[in-house]
Amino acid sequence: MIPAQFDYVEATSVADAIRLLAEHGDEAKLLAGGHSLIPLMKLRLVTPATLIDVTHIKELSYIKEDGNNIVIGALTRHRDIEQSELVKKHLPLVAHVAGEVGDPQVRNRGTLGGSLVHGDPAADLPAAALATGATMVIAGQNGERRVSAQEFFIDFLETDVQPGEILTAIEFPKHTDAGWAYEKFVRRAMDYAIVGVALQLGAKPGVALVNMSNKPHLAQSASQAISKGAAIADVLAVINDNTNPPEDLNATVEYREHLARVLTQRAFATASK
C-alpha cells in the first residue's frame, strides 16, 4: 500500500507525451485517471521508474460528432461520457456503461482511454467498445494508426499500444435508435462484474462479455448470429464459444457460462423494451 519511488513528469501535449515516452523508455508509464495504475503501484505489483502525467493534456478530453462517428478523446472522464447528450443519443450503451463503472468518485476521475489501455477483462468499458465496434486511435513517433477494438485487446492487461505510443481517441460508429443493453452480475454494486454482457443491436450488432476470458471478449459467433437475425435461443447456444472464463471465489467456469447465457437472454429482453 506504499508505492516504490518514481519520478514524475507532466506532459503538456500529445507530442510532448510521445517525446517523454521516448526519453524515459520502457520504465515509464502514462498516468491518466490512475484508478488502475495507482492501486497496482501501491501493492508494488507495478513499479514504474517514471510516471508521465497526461491528465493536463486538454486536447484529449472531448466528445464530438464526426460524420457517422462519435469520437471521444482518450482522457474524457467516465462521468462526462455518462452525462453527454451526444453519447446518450447516438451511443446509449456507452453512456450507460460509463455510468456503471465503480462509484461516483471513480467515474469523476477515471478516463475512457485509461480503462481501455488497461485491458482488464473484468472492466465494463472495454465490453462496450467491443460491442459497438469502436476503433482505437493510437499515436506514436511515426504518426497515428487505427486499430479495431477487437484487435486492440491482446491478452490479460495487454493491448496493442506499443512502447512509445499513446491512445488518443476512440471512434465509435453511431448506433442511433438501436436497441441495447448492459447486464452486469455483481455481489456488491461497486464491484467488477462476475459476468457482464454488453449487447448492441441495430444495423451493426455486437455482443461482448465481461470477465469471461483472459481479455475483454467479443462474442463473435453470437454477434454474427445476431447479424443474421438468428433466434435468441440460437444466440445463447453460441454465446460461450471461445470463452476462457476464470475460476475464483465467486464463480466456477460452469456458473460463469450459465450466467453469460442468463444475462444475454436478459439483455435481449431489456434491449427490446
Binding site: D103, R187, R188, A189, M190, D191, Y192, L249
Partner: peptide
C-alpha cells in the same frame, strides 16, 4: 476486492 465489505448501496 475479495473480502466483501458491503457499502450503503448493497
Amino acid at each position: 476486492m475479495d473480502y466483501l465489505v458491503p457499502a450503503a448501496s448493497d
